[in-house]
Design a protein around this nucleic acid. Structure first.
Lengths: 220, 220
DNA sequence: CGGTCTATTGAACGCTGTCAATCATGGTGG
DNA sequence: CCACCATGATTGACAGCGTTCAATAGACCG
């Protein structure tokens, strides 16, 4: 996945992939409290990660798709700190973290790659904090859709339509909203002709209008 | 700062500290968009980090005190992604990241330490997402106070009183609340005899009550 | 074809935001 | 040294957004 490696280095990189693991829809890749051993590179499928408070409240902390890495929450305490659930049948590469560390001491490009992945996650969470702390319901949903579309487009899929892999409740948990509020925002966008919604299928009719909702000031 | 190093390794670790830098209250350690070169270890003082949206909304993403590391947001894109502002006169150790990477290839304990620091930040942001997505105003403030107290106590300060280094507005930005709401929550706690507040000075009279507000279910 | 899960929609409520006035604090300069 | 001013904090009244509760409809799956 990372670029900037020569043929020899690529061969070495195969060492970090211990094996592959299949996770069926609804099953856990890892659970909060599990001993941390490995990072996981998603080959196919779609995951959510979430944290649970002692009194049972759940917060979805992210949705991850093919090509993304999960499990970095476990490094600090040698235990996973969140749950990772497959939202559709998935396959991941298991990368024992001890091997990743050993090899990244030999390959500066891999070392740099690992650092960037973790930094990217920190920056992503920063923007989720902005979303949760400052945005209104419709802005949150617009931001969410635009982010999903951009990531799917980077994987060769359409920029103008998508099939959601998660429920309204999971979207709501991620966005700090109740499922009814998410549903209402979808309906509002639909009434305004910005999107077409049919359950999990979403078609973007007016991407500019979505961007305007997400970031009003940019469009004076 | 890290443990698990022998004398020889400690000597090598000095290499990563290029120099020290003083930052006066109100001044920036780094700005969003600045070229990323170094991580900073806070020796003394108190910082806030915040991100700004294109339309000018500001979200405080964290408060950092002595012994903590800031700047990891810059690794992914070689540019800083947030602002770091000193809330009181501060001194930091400048640690050029290239040097950190070089040395952590030789010292596995340093490598592990760097990974843990970044993972800890990811986990911290996960709990802020829980706070912003699921908690009510008073729960947020209770969580905030308990977190500050715990970190100050780990540095040898009192568990039962503290002087806030930030304004109500900055607390509100961090907690996803308006400053008036923060102020009201302080007053409410005060009326209930849980804390004593006088501007930035806060004394905890009933820590158990605070914990109960933070996490109601634990106390059936 | 029934049963369960998910999504939509309506109505009423309540928490937090908004707007505004007042007070406290700390720094500055006359 | 004190008056002054700018900044920060508190408090009140009211409005609005999102939640809550509820009913209904739709989709999926055995």
């Amino acid at each position: 996945m990372p670029v900037g490696f020569n043929v020899d280095e690529m061969k070495r990189l195969d060492e970090v992939v211990e094996k592959r693991r299949r996770v069926k829809q609804g099953e856990l890749l890892f659970n909060s409290g599990d001993t941390f051993t490995s990072l996981y590179a998603i080959r196919t499928g779609f995951f959510k990660t979430c944290v649970t408070s002692e009194d049972g409240r759940e917060q979805v902390t992210g949705f991850q798709m093919a090509g993304e890495i999960i499990g970095m929450d476990g490094i600090v305490s040698d235990r996973h700190n969140c749950n990772a659930v497959a939202l559709e049948d998935a396959e991941v590469c298991v990368m024992p973290f001890a091997t990743v560390e050993d090899l990244s001491r030999e390959l500066p490009a891999l070392q740099r790659h690992v650092h960037k992945i973790m930094s990217r996650e920190i920056v992503r969470e920063n923007s989720v904090m902005m979303l949760l702390g400052n945005m209104r319901a419709e802005e949150r949903l617009a931001a969410f859709l635009l982010n999903l579309l951009q990531r799917l487009h980077a994987r060769g899929l359409s920029q103008s339509e998508l099939v959601l892999r998660m429920t309204r409740e999971e979207i709501g948990s991620y966005l700090g909203l109740k499922l009814e509020t998410v549903s209402r925002a979808f309906s509002k966008f639909s009434e305004e002709g910005i999107i077409e919604v049919k359950q999990r299928y979403v078609k973007i009719l007016a991407p500019e209008a979505l961007k305007k909702i997400f970031n009003p000031q940019t469009y004076f």
